[in-house]
Design a protein around this nucleic acid. Structure first.
Lengths: 251, 251
DNA sequence: TAGTGGTCTAGACCACAGG
DNA sequence: CTGTGGTCTAGACCACTAC
């Protein structure tokens, strides 16, 4: 897999804290060691220690503040950047066996909505993947992913039933840099209902994903529909660390 | 209102950058000034400049990386911590006039689910608020908020039709420190449908909010149901900055 | 190769929480 | 009051990008 680069000091400290929280050395409600003590323990200056704490704060794992020790919060463990893109990775982290049944993979002319999201002309070629995703054999979500040809061509001779699409694309050097996700609710259509084993009309949680390169070029536009009785999706926010959440009124 | 404390240097830099991005001095796709130049411009060392950049990265506004200048992303503007709790504040930021029609405010014995979420015994007293929220006069969401008595008592003689509940609670010194939000989809029940002017059974986006103090005590457990044709909710994520997103498989 | 952001050090002062 | 985390300085070296 990816050749593991030696961890930076702040990453090492963050990993140690995460690990200690995960294994219960520090439980929700507990106070963490002071920064000074972490400095001693890792033989570092305050910089890396503070960077590690900032990371955990942004992940929603701890809360800090002037004059008080940092405290471990009671939260669902958050995902890495990679795992938030890849259902495969997220399922694995949850201890569930990911599965998939590809409905189709196609190179096709972009429908209007897809073209707009990918900054293409309507009818320009895109690669689309339509899959049912399972966790431990149970249907969880329906994926509809769309890629510009330049990106999606890596998928045309790829076995989408065998392995993670996102991992494959990352390995091919596709530059996933930033994502925007929008949530809404839709009624299950006939085909989704059949795949997910629910009644047509059942409310599904929909997540619309847009992914971009560092240069701002679109690399993916996808639609995920979850059975919300099978999976929970959420966000943690801690006062003082920036929130990536947005709300927009549709007019 | 809140007496405005003079901004810290890194806050001032962040504010300037946000402002410059907002007004189009730097547009999506543009490169920001280098850190060195920002240091000169603000007469500061790299610390505050880097902290400001980290903030904007966490908000999903910019993307940075070794060897390259930071670039402005094309994203929806994210909310402050306060605005993410308060629909009133979020609507105002969107330029919409917030409105509300209180259905009822009550001190009542906690139902089982509420008791569990607030770490109380079933039947312990809680204060509940049930409101329809409007943006520019149009129904957008139905709120069901529940507070432990110690917190909710501030609401019993408060006009929930006139002003923001969250602002009032913050002014009363309630310690909102960290939040966990979960998304799912539900069918509109009779009463919600009537309030929101939709057909019963229409899929609604539900957001379940849990808020805690610094000490980890629950201060709020609420249920928000959105007409997802009237409002979009979402999250931005940038590679390299920690993600507060989580996914959990329900067994 | 020059310029950039990522990492780290070793100090300092301050605001605040808690005894 | 002591100890804590928040802020800031003034350096340094490195990895990477773009040229």
């Amino acid at each position: 897999m990816t050749p593991t680069r030696p961890l930076q000091q702040h990453e090492e400290i963050a990993a140690w804290l995460r690990e200690s929280i995960g294994t219960g050395t520090f439980s929700p409600g507990d106070l963490l060691p002071s920064e000074a003590e972490l400095c001693r323990r890792f033989g570092s200056s305050r910089g890396p220690v503070r960077q590690a704490m900032a990371t955990l704060r942004a992940e929603g794992l701890i809360s800090s503040g002037r004059g008080r020790r940092s405290r471990v919060l009671e939260t669902s463990p958050t995902e890495t950047f990679e795992a938030t893109i890849s259902a495969t990775a997220a399922f694995r982290r949850q201890g569930a066996e990911p599965g998939q049944r590809t409905q189709w993979v196609a190179r096709r002319p972009a429908p209007a909505e897809v073209a707009e999201a990918l900054a293409l002309e309507e009818g320009d070629p895109v690669v689309s993947v339509h899959r049912l995703r399972l966790a431990d054999g149970a249907p969880v979500l329906v994926e509809r992913q769309n890629y510009p040809l330049e990106v999606g061509r890596h998928l045309l001779d790829f076995d989408t039933d065998a392995s993670s699409v996102h991992r494959h694309l990352l390995e091919q050097g596709v530059d996933y840099d930033n994502l925007s996700r929008a949530f809404d609710a839709v009624a299950a259509a006939e085909d989704d209902a059949r795949l997910l084993h629910v009644e047509p009309g059942t409310p599904l949680l929909r997540l619309t994903l847009r992914a971009f390169t560092r240069a701002g070029e679109p690399v993916e536009f996808s639609d995920y529909r979850y059975r919300s009785d099978r999976v929970s999706l959420g966000v943690n926010t801690v006062r003082g660390s920036a929130s990536p959440l947005w709300l927009e009124i549709t007019r």
